[in-house]
């Protein structure tokens, strides 16, 4: 398990070295997105109003941002669940040229496959620590604010050692949480015994 400090724009060589379980801190430009942005672009066929070439880091998040003295103030920020956006995951990786996505709950097979083909990783938080992150995030700009509202708009951010996040999908399609699943499944067998649940227990089918 290694720790990496990476700069955006991310290059292929930055991300292919990452292995599941490694920790990553990120610096440089990034943008935010939730489902309404992806629906707006991919389903409703609108054009993304900015280039992601130098900004190939996407963060799934619904931040709290308030308008104060003609400026934006970031009040709270925690990556949200990526799996909800699985429907557009592969498309986002491919069409936006993403090299990393930050979010909770990992992503599904289709996105992992696209990540393998296009060299991209998924990164998960191990804490819910908005106040430790606030100091490492500056708001640069916002797009589609009127169309999508404050939570779902595409915020442009400038990051300074934003992290740590654990690599949960690497460029070879490995998933960190599958390792945890194996441990949990094995421990469950003993837990059933401790709880007096017979190994061959079957529910009476009521419906």
């Amino acid at each position: 398990m290694a720790t990496y400090y990476l700069n955006v724009p991310l290059m292929d060589e930055d991300v292919v070295q990452l292995k599941i379980g490694d920790l990553v801190y990120l610096s440089g430009p990034a943008f935010t997105c939730r489902s309404r942005l992806q629906r707006y672009i991919f389903d409703e066929k609108n054009k993304l109003p900015f280039s992601t070439e130098q900004r190939n880091l996407l963060i799934h998040v619904g931040p709290i941002i308030v308008r104060e003295n003609n400026d934006w103030r970031l009040v709270s920020f925690t990556p949200t669940s990526s799996i909800r956006f699985e429907k557009w995951g592969a498309k986002s990786v491919k069409e936006w040229g993403l090299k990393a996505i930050v979010g909770k709950t990992t992503m599904g097979e289709e996105t992992a496959q696209a990540m393998k083909e296009h060299k991209c990783v998924h990164l998960s938080p191990q804490s819910v620590s908005p106040n430790l992150w606030l100091d490492s995030i500056k708001i640069e700009d916002v797009y589609l604010f009127d169309e999508l509202g404050t939570i779902e708009a595409a915020w442009h951010l400038q990051l300074d050692k934003f992290g740590p996040f654990v690599v949960d999908i690497d460029c070879e399609g490995n998933n960190y949480f599958e390792g945890i699943d194996t441990i949990v499944e094995a421990n469950k067998k003993q837990a059933y015994k401790d709880l007096n649940i017979p190994a061959d227990f079957k529910y009476t089918k009521l419906y």
Binding site: V61, G62, P63, I64, V75, S76, F77, T78, Q126, S127, V128, S129, P130, N131, L132, P164
Partner: peptide
Amino acid sequence: EGFGNTLKSLDLSIERMNPACP
């Protein structure tokens, strides 16, 4: 660290009176 970082942030929320989570 997972617990420690979360607790640090939660304590800062009490101090700064900002939401514990967005």
